[in-house]
Amino acid sequence: MKIMRFLKEAQEKTGLLENNKIIELSCSPIEAINSKNIDESFQKDMNKLNDVQILPPVSPSKIVCVGLNYSDHAAEINMELPEEPIIFMKPSTSVVGHLDNIIYPASSSQVDYEGELGIVLSKEARNVKSEDAADYIGGYTAVNDITARDLQRKDGQWTRAKSFDTFCPMGPCIETELDPMNQNISLKLNGEFKQKSNTKNMIFNVYELVEFISNIMTLKPGDVIATGTPPGIGPMNIGDTVEAKIEEIGILKNFIKKS
């Protein structure tokens, strides 16, 4: 099922997406995911998708990101495969949703796209084993790990380059039922394909990532792990439209605007 958040009459709502219509639910996204069965007691009004403002599907306390996690990306930049995941973090204030603007900061001259599969945690996870990780994953969403590449090179570390407000679009929904080991992933810039791969090319799969990260820090319900980007990273310009797509989730579309 596809769970999403939306704005209706100035109030945040949870919805179940079916055939371009949203069934309003009387619970939070995480409660909907953990229920496993959305019966009539949860269901309220029916809304047309085009009549509401789509919000980020969750409000994470943190976004943990993985660098260099696709074998075809490593080959593209001629780098050796890492022995363990390379992780960094984005603040919750960087999160925006589907159809929101990405603001190009005045302090940067190169802002890049990075389309990724996002893991959404539905339970608190600490010291989880990979074979148990599926029990803690509520579903998956699309993420665009926006990066001020020139500032990343200048700083020698990644915090400033990854953390600007609007630098973590995610959505449009959480898909609770998909095979994360075999999903086509792509990204278009102004309608032209820039990234194309499949999650089977991940160096560390989603379950291994949950194990690795949860043995470092406690993951809270609603936290998101951005699992790395495939080949084809490149710059965007003010006025561009970027669309990150995960096969069974859908398209995350955003617009690049001047600060």
Rank of each mutant, 00 (worst) to 15 (best):
K196T: 05
C168D: 01
K90G: 03
V206T: 05
N20R: 13
N198G: 01
I30Y: 00
K245R: 12
D72M: 12
D45A: 15
S107D: 04
K196N: 13
Q110C: 14
K90I: 07
K200Q: 10
G228F: 00
D223Y: 09
V58P: 03
E192F: 07
N78W: 08
T227E: 09
N78T: 15
C27V: 04
G67W: 10
E247S: 14
A10W: 12
F193V: 05
K154T: 12
M46P: 06
S59L: 10
L49M: 14
G115S: 11
P56T: 13
N78A: 14
I137V: 05
Q183C: 15
V52K: 06
R153W: 09
V206H: 06
P57Y: 09
K154Q: 15
V143M: 02
I30R: 00
V66Q: 05
L25R: 01
M202K: 00
K194H: 04
I249S: 10
R160S: 10
S107L: 06
Q11W: 04
N201L: 06
P180Q: 15
S109T: 12
E84W: 11
L81C: 11
G156L: 15
L121H: 01
Q152I: 04
T199G: 02
C168T: 01
S59W: 03
R5D: 04
A161C: 14
E12T: 11
K2W: 08
I30T: 03
I137Y: 08
I3L: 07
N254L: 05
D240T: 11
Q152W: 13
A106Y: 03
A148L: 14
L189Y: 05
G118P: 06
Q152K: 14
E12S: 12
S94Q: 02
N144P: 09
A75K: 15
D51E: 15
N47K: 13
L49Y: 08
Y140N: 03
A134C: 04
I33M: 14
P29T: 01
S28V: 06
N50T: 13
A226V: 10
N182W: 03
N127S: 04
E116F: 10
N127G: 04
L16P: 11
N190Y: 07
A125S: 11
K194G: 02
S163H: 10
E192G: 02
S259F: 06
V242F: 15
I251N: 14
V206M: 07
F167M: 08
S259A: 10
M1K: 12
N254G: 06
D39V: 09
L99H: 08
Q110V: 11
A10M: 13
K13Y: 02
V242I: 15
D72R: 12
L99R: 07
I174G: 02
F204C: 03
L25S: 01
Q195W: 05
M236L: 08
M4I: 12
G234Q: 07
S108K: 03
F255Y: 14
N182R: 09
I87K: 09
A142I: 06
Q11C: 14
Q195P: 00
I185M: 04
T199Y: 04
L7E: 13
V96P: 01
D165V: 15
I225R: 10
M170G: 11
L209S: 00
